[in-house]
Write a protein that binds this DNA or RNA. Structure first.
Length: 471
RNA sequence: GGUCUCAUCGUCUAACGGUUAGGACACCAGGUUCUCAUCCUGGAAAUCCGGGUUCGAUUCCCGGUGAGAUCACCA
């Protein structure tokens, strides 16, 4: 049994998008591949930014993807006494002190530094400690770390060996004046108390890691293994991610009929590969093969077309029973009274052309309902538009005559269609197009004999008759 | 602006100094007795720029340029 433990620590400020999911996914993969644990911790120490319902939304998103967490969900807002205890320890050892300035005063220091073209460091304004005894702090002011400026060298599993100078070390706020800890402080306490071994997070925290290393020292806590994930980039060069860059709610993908395994395949191979030319991976394969040190250091762009392709590829790998189960919410309204075996035959026909399940109604509606005759299907057809209506009528009548004799088995249909080609001296592109249009009234449909067979004799013949009546 | 990081086809990436710079998505063309799709075959498409080191740089070094991150009582 491994002692590896990773965490996903989102703040409850809205829905989860692909970037957040990818961070969670990589943490989950690291835990699973070594038989370790993955935990979920809600970083809800900023009450002003909290969005109602986002915790449930985050949990639902992870569950949809199968990224189950191994312990109860932790909430930082319920652990304030723990942070207080560690803060007191720092204060008593002289490593934390009350910030005597108002936010306005601090802002003025910052602006003065800017006017002087000097980098702003709070520690240059650090107040004198009181004589004797630990610094006093009544909780009405922020509590700051008394930093110990120095350079650091450390290893990041993704970014490699990193270095920083003492100029990035400063006194930062541990406890805000509202009594809540800052992320910078409490995540370190939590990771330690929860025995997290690998801290895997987005690159927005990379620049803060030296500050964290300084705090780890002040707390006498051994730092965990660090791994910093590059961001998913926008197609528009920079700025915020737009929806087409993947900034939409991850559950929208569920609702459009994307498979969790396709999303996982897509996100894992966005900025990572196993060194071979394999593109399509099952989830358990990824767990086995994933290697955090092979993650690309630079940000990657979200390409929804690749996701679409992968989703189609995963759909094609599903067994019929699996597909039938997963596709259940996506049938067109007209299919609601159709029986299971009929729907399964329809699925068999459309499986290879389905890219996401929301396409199902458009692709299958004509199997369940007679669509109105659409004359444009013929008038815009590149071959049929040149035919006289009388000839089209003649062809359909000949077809009807033959199909009336058919038992509508796939074999018999195929044989009869072949004979009709000879009999009418038409090319497949003309005759088969005509029959397909007459029986489906759809711009696209599965192959002809399969469609006719599934549709059945009654519907097929009556639709041909309807088309005939239209000429 | 300071600090840190990164840089191969449009996109995701492979190539532990020697390859006709490989694969995949997307795109284009052809094939699979109709359409759309699948599948197969083929095509176009890249080492940011400039110096070094080396017999030889995509690869190592330096300098540009570009991109990203960060400099909060947000996480």
């Amino acid at each position: 049994m491994s002692n590896v433990k990773t965490r996903f620590a989102p703040s409850p400020t809205g829905f989860l998008h692909v970037g957040g999911v990818r961070t969670a996914l990589f943490a989950w993969l690291v835990a699973k591949q070594s038989g370790g644990k993955f935990i979920l911790r809600i970083e809800d120490t900023d009450q002003a930014r909290e969005v109602q319902g986002s915790v449930e939304h985050i949990q639902e998103s992870l569950q949809w993807l199968g990224l189950e967490w191994d312990e109860e969900t932790y909430f930082q807002s319920k652990r304030l006494d723990i942070y207080k205890k560690w803060a007191d320890k720092l204060r008593e050892s002289g490593r934390a002190y009350a910030d005597p300035y108002t936010p306005e005063q601090v802002q003025e220091f910052r602006e003065q530094a800017k006017r002087d073209k000097q980098p702003f460091l709070y520690r240059n304004h650090r107040p004198d400690p009181p004589a004797g005894g630990p610094p006093i702090w009544d909780g009405s002011q922020p509590l700051r770390l008394k930093s110990n400026p120095k350079g650091y060298s450390w290893h990041d599993e993704v970014m490699g060996d990193l270095h920083s100078g003492e100029e990035v070390i400063d006194d930062f706020i541990l406890i805000k004046s509202d009594g809540f800890p800052t992320y910078n402080f409490c995540h370190i306490i939590d990771d330690h108390e929860m025995e997290v071994t690998h801290v895997i997070r987005g690159q927005e925290f990379l620049a803060s890691i030296p500050k964290y290393l300084n705090l780890y020292e002040a707390l006498a806590i051994k730092p965990p293994i660090m791994a910093t994930m590059p961001h998913i980039m926008s197609e528009m060069g920079n700025k915020k991610l737009s929806k087409r860059d993947g900034a939409k709610d991850i559950l929208d993908y569920r609702d459009e009929g994307y498979l969790p395994e396709a999303m996982i395949n897509f996100l894992t191979t966005l900025g990572w590969n196993d060194g071979t030319e394999q593109e399509i991976f099952a989830v358990d394969e990824l767990i086995k093969k994933f290697d955090i040190s092979k993650i690309q250091k630079s940000g990657a762009q979200f390409d929804e077309r690749r996701l679409l392709w992968l989703n189609g590829a995963h759909i094609r790998k599903l067994s019929l029973d699996d597909l039938y189960e997963k596709v259940a919410p996506f049938w067109p309204e007209e299919a609601k009274n159709a029986d299971e075996s009929y729907k399964k035959r329809v699925l068999t026909l459309v499986q290879e052309r389905l890219k996401f399940f929301a396409e199902l109604p458009e692709l299958t509606r004509f199997f369940f309902i007679d669509l109105p005759i659409n004359p444009e299907l013929i008038s815009t057809h590149k071959q049929l538009k040149n035919y006289e209506h009388s000839r089209l009528k003649e062809l359909l009548e000949t077809t009807l005559e033959s199909l009336q004799q058919s038992d509508f088995s796939a074999d018999d249909l195929k044989e009869r269609l072949n004979k009709l080609l000879e009999l009418t001296d038409e090319k497949p592109v003309a005759l088969f197009s005509l029959i397909r249009i007459a029986t489906t009234q759809a711009p696209a449909s599965p192959e002809l004999t399969g469609s006719l067979h599934t549709l059945g004799k009654d519907k097929s013949l009556s639709r041909i008759n309807s088309q005939l009546a239209n000429f």
